[in-house]
């Protein structure tokens, strides 16, 4: 369940992600802009989904939305929605120096467009979660081309520093899952948040893994969960786990299926191949409704990145990608997070 406020630790950490990292990312994006002839790029992100915005700026909108205005040459600007009193705190989350107020968009956007020359060619990215009113605000001033198909693939191949962020995220995940198994939900959440998780989310089962639910009432804490889904975010980067906390035959079967998937997981392997490897271990078991035919997906600045890997898909694992692999059957889960060269960040 998405929280009303992501309140965990978040900052621009210049030790992990220094300025040169963002300069390189911006150069890559500008290369795509040049290839398409775009004079300016508007990147949208909001508290629900901000992968591309965060990739370029490190900025994460805790509330509402933000637009990044990126000219082909020159400095980037951010327009942050929210109260003006919050702008100084927002400026601490990004390397971008010009952090302005979205409330001035009707003034700033035409000025910015005019600065790009006569009849500039504009593109808009980060459209997946954009709200109608924000989209209308943009198209009132220009007629942008949609840029997600051109830009989102850049996020699939993890850069060296991104891989390190994923490792850190998975470390917090590992601690969190271990604490969940030993001391329960509240202790696990405390561990994650005190470990500098930016966000942490749980679904858990009180019915032997049949259904997974969010925390709703104190009665949810009376009995230890039998299974759980845990997602942890660190400095923008997600890791996730499906775990069964009781020893059951289904858990063993899921673990064996996962091991078989990990044995074949390498660049070029399809979701169909992974499912085929898992299948012999899952005979007689019913797929869990939460996972169905899926066997995994990409992960990084979004919890659910492309590609979706499933038994009926030819999407492949790619060199440089990071993936969450999962097996879910009635009464048993197993999952792993993997990176290139078979580096396993989490397995359980």
């Amino acid at each position: 369940m998405h929280p009303v406020l992501v309140l965990g630790s978040y900052r621009w950490d210049q030790e992990w992600l220094p300025l040169d990292e963002f300069e390189e990312r911006l150069r890559t994006v500008r290369g795509v802009m040049a290839a398409h002839g775009w004079d300016g790029l508007i990147v949208h992100g909001n508290s629900e989904e901000s992968a591309l915005l965060t990739y370029l700026t490190n900025f994460y909108p805790r509330l509402r939305w933000t637009l990044a205005l990126i000219p082909a040459k020159g400095d980037m600007r951010l327009l942050v929605a929210g109260a003006t009193r919050d702008l100084p705190a927002a400026a601490m989350l990004t390397w971008v120096k010009d952090v302005g107020w979205y409330g001035n968009a009707d003034k700033v956007l035409p000025e910015w467009l005019a600065s790009l020359g006569a009849k500039p060619k504009i593109a808009l990215a980060g459209i997946g979660a954009i709200r109608p009113a924000v989209h209308e605000k943009v198209i009132a001033h220009c007629k942008p081309e949609e840029a997600d198909d051109a830009l989102l693939p850049l996020l699939r191949k993890k850069r060296p520093r991104e891989r390190q962020m994923l490792r850190q995220s998975a470390k917090i995940l590992t601690d969190t899952v271990a604490t969940l198994a030993k001391d329960g939900l509240i202790a696990a959440e405390r561990r994650a948040r005190a470990g500098q998780a930016q966000d942490v989310r749980f679904l858990f089962s009180l019915d032997g893994g049949k259904t997974l639910k969010p925390f709703e009432a104190p009665s949810d804490l009376e009995n230890p969960p039998s299974a759980a889904y845990v997602a942890v975010r660190y400095l923008g980067y997600w890791s996730e786990a499906f775990v069964t906390l009781e020893d059951t035959p289904a858990k063993k079967a899921a673990a064996a299926a996962l091991a078989a998937m990990l044995d074949v997981a390498k660049p070029g392997v399809t979701g169909r191949d992974l499912a085929r490897a898992a299948a012999p271990h899952l005979k007689g078991h019913t797929p869990h409704p939460m996972i169905g035919a899926r066997v995994g997906h990409g992960i990084g600045l979004s919890l659910d990145e492309a590609p979706v890997l499933s038994a009926d898909s030819d999407a492949t694992l790619e060199d440089g990608g990071a993936y969450s692999l999962q097996v879910g059957i009635a009464g048993g889960f197993a999952s792993a997070m993997v990176m290139p060269n078979n580096e396993i960040l989490w397995r359980g």
Binding site: L7, S9, I186, R190, A194, F215, E216, P218
Partner: peptide, 25 residues
């Protein structure tokens, strides 16, 4: 750290039954 204090408050209130929390601190 601020985030450590926030973690403690958030989890304490959750244990008391808070199903959500817009905690600015």
């Amino acid at each position: 750290h601020e985030f450590e204090l926030a973690a403690e408050l958030y989890c304490h209130m959750k244990s008391l039954g808070a199903d959500e929390n817009f905690l600015l601190m």
